[in-house]
Design a protein around this nucleic acid. Structure first.
Lengths: 166, 166
DNA sequence: TGTTGACAGTTCCTTTTTAGAACTGTATCT
DNA sequence: AGATACAGTTCTAAAAAGGAACTGTCAACA
């Protein structure tokens, strides 16, 4: 499948997957949220091939998720720093972590704990409705076509365009 | 990188990425949440190669994200249905969709809108702290080593084991 | 002065994955 | 009888990823 095909799908999930939807991208972002900023830092912590790393960093910069900032002149050296757009991926990252904490831990328990500075407590992330504040569950949500939908879009059971043959 | 290496990382994000961290897995899950259940359904809607689809479905069943249910005898025919563990991925999916809605829409607007049955309103998903209910932001969270951490784990700035060389 | 190391990549070649299309085998529909 | 639905499997070609070495600039060390 071509990557840029995904980006043009009339689906916000597919478009986001075009940006972060592979193993390395997600692991690189994990490091970003842990304050890693430099090429060598990512490479040595992850064991990713340098080629792939260069590629993914470029992609993140292109999509505005990371900013490439020169921190030293001659030789020019750059750091990769999360933009606001990148920071906005925090709910995605935390949701992924929380699923792992719930379903993939071994007998020793969670690798990491999270403390909310505002209230001081160890917490789990909860996804709630912006309107009523109640926790969200798949079965309590109706999906409707929006303005950016193709002819008639993906409410359950409706047909949608294919990824590849479009 | 070997897939099973990821699964054994002392990191809930990496372990979850081992299950859902590739383009096709996420797109297949999207279809699951839109009530697609059958091999032909996934294949024709996504344009994924049949080989890959068979592979990913097996993986999801192995990880308990989908259940393979016989809906017809001779010839045996199966459906793939989200388990509770699969349904628990809803926050991950919705967070991804919401990032796309915020940062990847074109001039026409969102492809899909979501309505909360409980309160009747169109909503956005918001990730909040389970303890105080406030929205979560990366900079307001402290990370601590948990019981399942390696020797000393990934609080910001701490060293952690590499992915590849372990 | 020469050597080593940090850093941010690039180049080259091998191995693994994925794409694409055709084929299987049972059963129902026309 | 022939076409179609369905859930896959098999085969080969093309694309992506892995792995290791190499570049070029500079600082620190001996």
């Amino acid at each position: 499948m071509r990557w840029d095909a995904l980006e043009e799908e009339p689906c916000s999930l597919a478009r986001t997957v075009a940006v972060i939807g592979d193993r390395w991208s997600l692991l690189i972002l994990r490091e970003c949220f842990l304050r890693v900023r430099r090429f060598e830092g990512f490479q040595s912590r992850l064991g990713i091939t340098r080629h792939l790393l260069a590629d993914r960093l470029k992609k993140f910069v292109r999509y505005g998720v990371l900013r490439r900032v020169r921190y030293q002149e001659s030789p020019a050296r750059y750091e990769y720093i999360l933009t606001q757009r990148g920071l906005d991926l925090y709910p995605v990252m935390m949701s992924i972590v929380h699923w792992g904490d719930t379903h993939m831990v071994d007998e020793r328990g969670r690798p990491l704990l999270h403390q909310h500075k505002n209230c001081g407590k160890m917490f789990d992330p909860v996804l709630v409705c912006s309107e009523c504040g109640e926790p969200l569950h798949a079965k309590e949500v109706h999906v409707h076509s929006g303005p950016g939908a193709p002819a008639s879009a993906a409410a359950p059971g409706e047909r949608r365009k294919q990824v590849s043959s479009s």
